[in-house]
Design a protein around this nucleic acid. Structure first.
Lengths: 258, 258
DNA sequence: GAGTGGTCTAGACCACTCG
DNA sequence: GAGTGGTCTAGACCACTCG
């Protein structure tokens, strides 16, 4: 439906510049056309042009400054919101064929950890799905998703071996508005080890994710584990734009083994 | 100097709302004042108000949508650009006392790895600084920074045991415009192990960082290593805003040990 | 139907960059 | 001094939400 909506002017302008960058017509370091030129080219006032530039700055594609042309930055990979919380979308964007094998699906009472993450009461019913995800057939990460019952109910008629669970939930009208993720490291447990074909204790990246509705209700808590030797996480930041990102030292910092 | 510039209207409005959120007057889930109300309150037209809202959306503090009030999101920690590339600024923001002990400083020819990262020729002179950084006196990360000679020259008259090197370089007029970071995992080598007081092979987070000028020249290549059990990295993303972030699977993916 | 934020116009002034 | 992007005004129309 949103794909049928005629694109807004500022979206058209941003998409034009994006395509020029990705296709290589605008190269890293090149100055962009001036705002005045873009206004003429798109028969637009400055508002939509500036909104497009703002979008591209937020994506880390360009850098702007008073008195000089905006220029194209070097790093062109950025993550769409979908890739942020859908493994299928993420692998698809990387040009890999996503696969999945269900380890188990359950309707169960929430453990204290999951209850806290979902902001419900311990013992409340939740739906859990554990899957191994693969890229071009190679096991790539273990995915453990937990949903409160009003969302989990929508999974009952979904074949978890068949692809993107998030796409299914979006189609069912679930209002995924924003996500919060935390990355740590953890040794592989028995289930991880079997699924990823490594030994127990092998170092893994652990990314936990909470999805919220616009109203702030938690509708998903998920735990993704990747082999730490097989993944890279990247970030681009431009001066003047603060990014929704943070790094912290947990409180048990003082514990100093070895 | 930039701190002496009178604040722009949109900055005042954004700062007002930010303070209301951080002080707890506006709580998670609360609706913000309408744009019309903020226009009256700040005797402003809609432009600056909308620009302030856009800033706060990019910071992950609020969520907006057509037809309804913007609301305050739950996760309020965000990273300023300074914290992105200055360990001193980052620890300061966490309320910890930053410390540093210089391991060594050298003017040396660039290795092939560093030359590639700095986009110079192998063997060109570079300045390197290796330091152990601590938080409240506890060793916290190993920092290895490499600068091309035109920047590195500015370090000669800086006491590397005395604090923020980036602040020194900023004052000297170095144009840090944007940074690109990559996070991976790596086992501790001998120098890491001694500095962080762990055994060789202990799992570390490795964050490499490249800083660029507005013109796209690389002015710094740095390698930070943290104990993987002592750090958490977080990200907040709102639907509709794509963030300058990516995750990838390196090419040697097929190698499947164990 | 009243209120809201998203989009857009057409103008203005300014700080800054660059030749 | 010409050109540029940053900021701001004062208006307009619209899609959407909500009671």
């Amino acid at each position: 439906m949103s794909t049928l909506r005629p694109p807004q002017q500022h979206e058209e302008i941003a998409e034009f510049i994006r395509q020029e960058i990705f296709s290589g017509h605008f190269k890293a370091g090149d100055p962009l056309p001036s705002e005045a030129e873009l206004c003429k080219q798109f028969d637009s006032s400055r508002g939509p042009v500036r909104q497009a530039m703002s979008t591209l700055r937020a994506e880390g594609l360009i850098s702007s400054g008073r008195g000089r042309r905006s220029i194209v930055l070097d790093n062109t990979r950025t993550e769409s919101f979908d890739a942020v919380f859908s493994v299928s979308a993420w692998l698809g964007a990387l040009g890999k064929e996503p696969g999945q094998r269900t380890l188990w699906v359950a309707r169960q009472p929430a453990s204290s950890e999951i209850a806290e993450a979902l902001e419900i009461t311990e013992g409340d019913p939740i739906f859990s799905v554990h899957r191994v995800r693969s890229a071009d057939g190679v096991p790539c990460l273990v995915e453990r998703m937990h949903f409160p019952s009003e969302v989990g109910r929508l999974i009952m008629d979904f074949d978890t071996d068949s692809g993107s669970l998030h796409r299914h939930l979006l189609r069912a009208g679930v209002d995924f508005n924003n996500v919060s993720r935390v990355l740590t490291a953890i040794p592989a447990n028995e289930e991880d080890a079997k699924a990823l074909k490594v030994e127990e204790g092998f170092p893994l990246f652990r990314m936990t994710l909470r999805s919220y509705t616009h109203a702030g209700e938690v509708i998903e808590y998920a735990d993704y584990r990747y082999r730490a030797d097989q993944i890279r996480l990247g970030m681009n930041n431009v001066r003047g734009s603060s990014s929704p990102l943070w790094v912290e030292i947990p409180d048990q910092w003082e514990d100093n083994p070895s």
